Simulated scan of single mutants.
Amino acid sequence: MGTRRDELLDAAITVLGERGIRALTHRAVDAAAGLPVGSTSNHFRTRDALLDAVVERFAARERAAWEDLARRTYPTTPHELARVLVLAAREATGAHRTLTLARYAILVESGIHPSLRAQLSATGAEVNAWFLQWLRVAGSTDPERDAPIIMNHFTGLVLHELAIPDPAFDPTDQITALVTTVIRPRSAEVPS
């Protein structure tokens, strides 16, 4: 069972994911949490304090979702990695839709608030580290090059599906083509 603080922050994430950044107010969070007016401001005196705490909570929830995915699978080939990313895209646009929409709202807001940018970079470091490891295990010879190519495409693909939902959404072919093209197979060294 979470704390009252976590309950408020989860309600704030729901407000963000369902109504956008402008809707994120203390009163909106109180209402979403089903708590008396003033509950949110008792924990977070300013909107900036609320937003900073939301980023921490959001990052923890997103990291937990990715860690759950990592526990269920360990891709050792480009095709297996593509399957995992397809599953992640489906979860991000399905079961975790509100959380993902909140993520994009926070990302856009970080363009205006540099403190959020720094906070997002710091909280994303753990996820980035294990994704680089997945790339290595899947056969990437240059994970630092491959990671942004794959994840930036993944981010755009998910954003597009959230913005313009397709009932037949199936990113399998696109993600598989991307991953198997980007991850360069290991080859034997050619004598000089």
Rank of each mutant, 00 (worst) to 15 (best):
H26W: 03
G124K: 11
A92E: 12
V108R: 13
F169C: 09
D10W: 05
L132Q: 13
A95P: 07
S110K: 14
H26C: 10
T100D: 01
A12F: 06
I164M: 09
D170T: 12
I106G: 01
S192D: 09
V29E: 00
L178V: 11
F44T: 14
R145L: 08
R145H: 12
T46N: 06
A125S: 11
A60C: 03
D68P: 00
R117A: 04
D48A: 10
W134F: 02
I175W: 05
E161L: 00
A177P: 00
E189H: 08
D30W: 02
L51F: 05
A102E: 04
S115Y: 04
V86M: 03
R71G: 08
A65R: 15
R22E: 07
T76S: 11
V108F: 01
A70F: 04
W130Q: 07
T46L: 08
S140N: 02
V158S: 03
D173Y: 06
A95K: 12
A49M: 14
Q174A: 14
D10I: 03
P185L: 05
V182I: 10
E7C: 04
A70M: 06
R63L: 12
N42I: 01
A59D: 07
R71K: 08
R145S: 08
L178D: 10
R5L: 10
R27Q: 01
L120Y: 07
L87Y: 04
T172N: 02
G20P: 06
V179I: 01
H160E: 06
A64E: 13
L51C: 13
A163Y: 03
R22M: 03
V108P: 00
R103C: 01
T76I: 13
E7N: 10
E161Q: 15
F169N: 08
R63D: 07
R5K: 15
L8W: 09
A118G: 10
D6C: 08
T3W: 00
D142F: 00
G17T: 06
A163D: 07
E56M: 03
R63F: 01
S140C: 03
E126W: 12
L85Q: 07
L116F: 02
A23H: 10
T46H: 04
T3C: 00
T46W: 01
Y104E: 10
A105R: 14
A129D: 04
G111Q: 11
G38Y: 02
A105N: 04
Q174M: 08
V86E: 10
